[in-house]
Design a protein around this nucleic acid. Structure first.
Lengths: 226, 226
DNA sequence: CAAATATTCAAGTATATAATTGAATACTAG
DNA sequence: CTAGTATTCAATTATATACTTGAATATTTG
């Protein structure tokens, strides 16, 4: 193979991989991946959850689809999107963890918005798995109920933050509460923990989210559809 | 935290991660990452190896640096770039492997340029590691000598493709030859294997490249500088 | 079949990016 | 200090992308 042909090959090949890179090159699309890591969603749902217009959401999904990162299937009137492969979440996880440890700006953004985060204790998925065995903790899933139904940590109770006030009595005073959410930057668990601690409960945060638990191969519980 | 503030947080946060995604959104930059996974290189070297102008190479490196994927240090007259973290290679590896298994276009490009690839036997890094023990194979590193010196599979011999003809006698007729290169799409190993097979040698290709071997935690040998 | 609704497409505007060229900067060696 | 060299910057052009708006398409339900 001559030099010019080698260069053409290289360019065509790396440009193909760059198509996937381009799909990761928008904050809006990364957010969609994070949402789809919880469960499959319709375009409408994704638009609502990501605060984007439906048309814009649809276009981002088209780009993710053309990069083969998500798949679509028709469910009646709706188009339902999901991650094409569990490795797509792992790719996002690798990006997230690299950024988390290396990009100072990320730390700055997190601390400027979640000012009390440093004072909230957090435990890892491994630690939680150990403590599930001796039943010393109550696990609290604060995501929307549909995401809980699609998969959650075994034994976790589903109480979205908005309902926490009304359903506080469901949580035993005697046990420590571990709240979790979509991922390490999901605000919902922070809010729940702060609120519970303000009421004298012993609450802490799971460092990562449900998809990280699942990707680690830890057991997952589902609510049968109905 | 009110809704508008939550949205601002989300947008700022995901946009930060997208900066890394943007760094992966160019075939030229992915190629630079692949080259830097072999060893650190100067801007000049990278420009030559990637067939780009020095100015253009420098600009791509600037983007990679601002995404914290590479680091630069001054070595006398030269600026020497290297991957900022071993996880950067793992990120590229995750992208590469996902694309390899999911994007049909990649298969098409590889097959249209490397028409005989399918007929060339290839073995995995694990398989090679096993076979190194019983000394049944000769390992051939066909990358440029500086990349070999910076790190190679233990016991491998360094013979760049261009020198293969002159140095054929260095390779024992009695043993199987496994040639490797920068990565699964590096053409050099294919060329060496084809050339050797045409001369009756029992040669095959290592499926992945040296950085994959290294990332797997397998032993690596270095040539002391001098 | 028609109305209703979810989704996608197409056009337009503003912004961002890639690569080229030539000038400016930073460092070394004499 | 000066000449020489590697690298980076700045300005430019061509191309690509994000988001909005309004129209078009596809599917279900009555």
């Amino acid at each position: 193979m001559d030099k010019a042909r080698k260069r053409d090959f290289k360019i065509e090949l790396f440009d193909q991989f760059a198509r996937m890179g381009k799909a990761l090159a928008s904050g809006r699309r990364l957010e969609l991946i994070e949402l789809l890591a919880q469960k499959e969603h319709t375009v409408e749902d994704l638009a609502r959850l990501s605060d984007m217009s439906v048309a814009n959401t649809s276009q981002h999904l088209k780009i993710l689809r053309s990069a083969q990162l998500v798949e679509v299937r028709r469910l009646g009137l709706y188009a339902s999107y999901r991650l094409a492969d569990e490795r797509v979440f792992r790719l996002w996880q690798a990006l997230r963890e690299l950024g988390d440890s290396r990009i100072a700006e990320i730390d700055r953004v997190v601390n400027s918005f979640l000012t009390d985060r440093k004072s909230l204790k957090a435990i890892s998925t491994e630690e939680l798995k150990r403590r599930l065995k001796d039943r010393s903790v109550v696990v609290l899933d604060v995501r929307p109920p549909d995401e809980y139904r699609a998969g959650h940590i075994p034994g976790a109770r589903s109480i979205p933050v908005a309902e926490l006030k009304a359903r506080l009595k469901e949580l035993p005073r005697s046990r420590e509460i571990v709240a979790y959410c979509r991922g390490p930057y999901c605000v919902l668990a922070d809010e729940a923990v702060e609120w519970l601690r303000a009421r004298g409960r012993n609450a802490l945060r799971l460092e990562q989210g449900f998809p990280d638990w699942e990707a680690q191969g830890f057991p997952v519980e589902h609510v049968p559809q109905g």
